[in-house]
Nucleic acid binder design. Structure first.
Length: 335
DNA sequence: TTAGCATGAAAAA
DNA sequence: TTTTCCTGCTAAT
């Protein structure tokens, strides 16, 4: 269920935990047995994300492409080094307690991988070790008492295993081994991603692509070939922030409006990657910010808020079926 | 405890 | 346009 920010976070996690190692690669479920055999024992040399797709490079010009789709997820276990640049917010814990329930923060402190229950504390973002980190639409870190490596739970399509860390992939919509040329072809079909290059050139690439479309802007923002990484939540929230009627044809918009949309996506994406949540209401501080981390309704303007008064103008938020997806918007603000 | 839905996208029809 | 993937959250029970 993740949008672009989650995939970038997961790619960073692989950068920290796997790049430079030669993991054992298997497919407990069996459906990726052939691909696993190709990758097994090879050194991972790069981990990157473009939009909602992740690419892991292995020596010998083999790339693993993963797309999580609507319910895919990665689970890391063992000595998981948290990228110091990102925060893992923990709102729910397993049997081993890492901190106060409901408190947002960063898990810190070593957890013995042999399974001893140990205490980690909430503190400043630094190198951290936790026993289990679930990375999907929402991240979850917890201590466990289980053995390492853990028994595969459910349908594990791929397992990557080093001496100290294990990563399990479940429920992906895509998981395949590609050649460099095939990776290029996939990336070629994707629009620009500001998390990789927030440059005037890339912004212009988005503007040029969008301006050619008569399609409503509400659909254009979801089109991964025009701009990469935006999903249903960010789509709705960005349109609200820009005060745009989702039905407006993209080609009727002033290029400056499209430029602003790009800039806003870059801004929201950066927050999402760092914080691990889609915070689309800006500038919250203190208690309000804490509530935004804990409650979805507190961090969004319109998403899943149909029937409630708009936080800006008081008009009731509307839910509309739009391009086979649910669209939330404010008829008062979004003229 | 459980049933229905969902922060995608590709394949099938 | 419908089906598939077949997980996990959440509201309802």
């Amino acid at each position: 269920m993740p949008e672009g920010h989650s995939v970038h976070r997961i790619a960073r996690q692989f950068g920290v935990n796997f790049v430079g190692t030669a993991p054992e690669v298997s497919s407990p479920q069996g459906r990726f047995a052939q691909g696993a055999a190709i990758l097994n024992g090879r050194e991972m040399t790069d981990a990157r994300a473009v939009g909602k797709q992740m690419f892991l490079e292995f020596e010998g010009d083999h790339w693993l492409r993963v797309h999580l789709g609507i319910y895919g997820a990665w689970d890391f276990a063992g000595e998981v080094e948290i990228d110091p640049a990102i925060q893992i917010h923990t709102t729910k814990f397993g049997r081993g307690r890492l901190g106060q329930t409901g408190m947002a923060g960063v898990v810190e402190g070593p957890v013995d991988r042999a399974g001893e229950d140990s205490v980690a504390s909430i503190g400043a973002p630094r190198r951290s070790r936790v026993a289990r980190v679930h990375m999907a639409e929402r991240d979850r870190a917890e201590a466990t008492n289980g053995a390492f490596p853990p028994d595969p739970v459910g349908q594990v399509r791929v397992r990557l295993l080093t001496e100290t860390v294990c990563a399990d992939l479940r429920g992906p919509t895509a998981c395949e081994v590609l050649t460099p040329a095939e990776v290029d072809a996939v990336v070629q079909r994707l629009g620009p991603d500001p998390a990789n290059a927030n440059t005037p050139e890339e912004r212009q690439r988005f503007v040029d692509r969008a301006r050619r479309k008569r399609t409503p802007i509400g659909l254009v923002l979801m089109d991964q070939s025009i701009i990469a990484g935006i999903g249903n939540v960010y789509r709705a929230e960005m349109l609200f922030r820009a005060r745009l009627d989702p039905h407006t044809p993209a080609n009727s918009l002033d290029p400056a409006v499209l430029e602003d949309l790009w800039d806003d996506w870059a801004h929201l994406l950066e927050i999402g990657i760092t914080v691990g949540q889609m915070i689309t209401i800006d500038g919250l501080e203190g208690e309000a910010y804490r509530r935004a981390l804990a409650e979805r309704d507190e961090r969004h303007w319109v998403y899943k808020l149909e029937g409630t008064p708009c936080k800006r103008c008081g008009t009731n938020i509307v839910l509309e079926e739009f391009g086979a997806r649910k669209l939330y918007w404010c008829p008062g603000c979004q003229l």
